[in-house]
């Protein structure tokens, strides 16, 4: 890619970034264009990834091998066993099973034959459900409960602040988990002790959500900072001040738009008044 293309890229990137940020001021055609472009480009990206990583190597190429392999059979008579043996060994015929099941999903869009898609869906769902059950039992249920039921004291340690803290934390995790579970599972009627426990459970959840929220702020800001950093790069003379020019043009658009729409609404008012 030549230098010119990189500069054009700078203009495109600066423009699209500013178009999307312009939504913060108010909705406008430039944001809408960028938004729709994103939708289409995203689908295009996924499409090419699917094509070059799965459809081409795992479906198209085996089928091509099969078709090439079938060319031998012309030399055999159809009633000879050699013919059928050649057909069978021409390639991997099983490739058609997942391909047809996959393609069956598309019948969803045609009401009359949409039931065909059930073959694809039930295949995916059956396999998925069968895989999920044992894994959920072991990973997120049994192992988590076993991880909670731990001895409160470390064997062979002396009394100290550290060992006290360990005991305290181990107890707190078990106690908190019980309270959270009570909050989740006794949602219908809560009285007395159950209500107290479930209230305590909420505090544990709040600490967790607070931690997650506090952490999010960081993640979002660094993404935003990254965009600003790029814009700053594209505002240099090397990119012929792409960021400034586009931002200024957009500002002019908003000012003009403001006056035109003000004029229009005044005209409309005059019309309705007369």
């Amino acid at each position: 890619m030549s230098e010119t293309w990189l500069i054009i890229g700078g203009w495109v990137a600066a423009g699209l970034t500013i178009f999307i940020f312009s939504f913060l001021y108010k909705d406008n055609p430039f944001f809408k264009i960028a938004e729709h472009l994103y939708l289409g480009a995203g689908m295009g990206w996924w499409f090419q990834v699917m094509f070059y990583n799965i459809w081409k190597p795992k479906v198209w190429e085996p089928v091509k091998i099969l078709v090439n392999g079938l060319q031998i059979i012309q030399s055999y008579h159809i009633w000879k066993p050699e013919f059928w043996k050649a057909v069978w060994t021409a390639g991997d015929w099983t490739i058609f099973i997942p391909t047809l099941l996959g393609l069956s999903l598309i019948t969803q869009f045609f009401q009359k034959i949409s039931w065909v898609s059930r073959y694809g869906f039930t295949f995916i769902m059956g396999y998925g459900a069968g895989l999920v059950i044992p894994v959920s039992v072991s990973t997120d249920f049994m192992t988590q409960i076993l991880g909670t039921i731990k001895p409160l004291f470390k064997v062979g340690t002396e009394m100290s602040w550290a060992s006290f803290f360990y005991t305290f934390n181990t107890f707190l995790i078990a106690f908190g988990l019980v309270c959270v579970l009570i909050y989740f599972f006794f949602s219908a009627e809560q009285k007395g002790l159950v209500k107290k426990a479930s209230n305590i459970g909420i505090y544990f959840l709040m600490l967790y959500f607070g931690a997650a929220f506090g952490n999010t702020v960081m993640g979002r800001f660094s993404l935003l900072y990254g965009r600003f950093d790029d814009l700053y790069k594209y505002s240099s003379v090397k990119y012929f001040y792409a960021a400034q020019i586009i931002a200024a043009a957009l500002a002019v658009y908003f000012i003009l738009n403001h006056f035109i729409s003000a004029k229009k609404s005044r005209a409309a008012q005059d019309n309705s008044g007369s």
Binding site: T139, T143, G147, I173, Y208, A212, N215, M218, G219
Partner: peptide, 24 residues
């Protein structure tokens, strides 16, 4: 990502994960 980091405490405690990097 940072937002999901606090949620992996349970797997770390049980050793189902041996290490975790959270966010930037």
């Amino acid at each position: 990502t940072a937002v999901s980091q606090p949620g992996y405490g349970p797997y770390l405690q049980t050793g189902q994960l041996v290490g975790l990097l959270g966010g930037m």
